[in-house]
Amino acid sequence: MRALLVGGGRPGLALTRALTADGHAVRFVTRHAAFGPEIEAAGGETYIGDPDRIGSLRYALDNVTVLLWLLGRAPDGDLHGSRLTMMMERTIDTTVRGMVYEGTAAGAAEVARMADYNEIPHAVLTTPREDEAAWVAAVLEAIDGVLAAPRGAAS
């Protein structure tokens, strides 16, 4: 399985370590190349892009199984609205088989709408990042859930 991790911050590094320890590949999106060595030390592949500029993520979905849009700490706005919608539109006719979202209630509703339209299972993460171990465990459980669900079934 290859995950595309958009957001996640420093806890995303712990998630990357957990996924790569289980033999999965992680493509970790960052706006800053200086974060690349930390991503690579965690076992991930650095992808320079900006979720505020969906075009910069054009090739990020190549060979991705699960899209992780983990921007729960980002302010309410386009990242949970129009940018999220545009990104999910790009999952049509790709290898993406599931999506995990962390963000706002409005964003979660948009994920449900778009995931149903795209016929991909999805999960909405509500575990706070303050307990990093619990957050990582929740993301891993969500990934397992969307991968276990039949395509076309929303979770």
Score class of each variant (00 low, 15 high):
residue 91 T to E: 03
residue 115 A to C: 09
residue 64 V to F: 06
residue 139 V to T: 07
residue 70 L to S: 05
residue 88 M to Y: 05
residue 55 G to V: 09
residue 106 A to G: 05
residue 85 T to N: 01
residue 65 T to H: 15
residue 103 G to H: 13
residue 83 R to L: 01
residue 87 M to P: 03
residue 72 G to T: 09
residue 55 G to H: 13
residue 116 D to H: 11
residue 119 E to Q: 14
residue 113 R to N: 00
residue 144 D to H: 13
residue 115 A to S: 14
residue 119 E to G: 02
residue 52 D to P: 00
residue 109 A to M: 12
residue 138 A to V: 04
residue 89 E to V: 00
residue 146 V to K: 14
residue 143 I to F: 08
residue 56 S to Q: 09
residue 120 I to P: 05
residue 114 M to H: 05
residue 54 I to W: 12
residue 131 D to K: 10
residue 71 L to N: 10
residue 78 D to Q: 13
residue 105 A to D: 15
residue 114 M to T: 03
residue 53 R to E: 10
residue 81 G to H: 10
residue 118 N to W: 04
residue 54 I to P: 14
residue 93 D to V: 01
residue 72 G to V: 08
residue 87 M to S: 03
residue 133 A to L: 07
residue 64 V to K: 09
residue 139 V to Q: 11
residue 67 L to H: 08
residue 145 G to I: 02
residue 74 A to R: 12
residue 143 I to A: 06
residue 51 P to S: 06
residue 45 E to R: 10
residue 96 V to D: 08
residue 123 A to R: 15
residue 122 H to V: 00
residue 127 T to R: 09
residue 125 L to Y: 07
residue 141 E to F: 02
residue 143 I to W: 11
residue 108 A to Q: 09
residue 53 R to K: 12
residue 142 A to V: 02
residue 137 A to E: 15
residue 122 H to D: 04
residue 89 E to D: 12
residue 132 E to W: 10
residue 132 E to C: 06
residue 135 W to K: 06
residue 47 Y to T: 02
residue 46 T to I: 06
residue 134 A to P: 03
residue 77 G to Y: 12
residue 56 S to C: 03
residue 78 D to W: 07
residue 57 L to I: 05
residue 112 A to V: 04
residue 97 R to F: 01
residue 71 L to Q: 12
residue 66 V to T: 10
residue 47 Y to M: 02
residue 113 R to M: 00
residue 64 V to P: 03
residue 60 A to R: 14
residue 102 E to G: 06
residue 45 E to H: 05
residue 106 A to E: 15
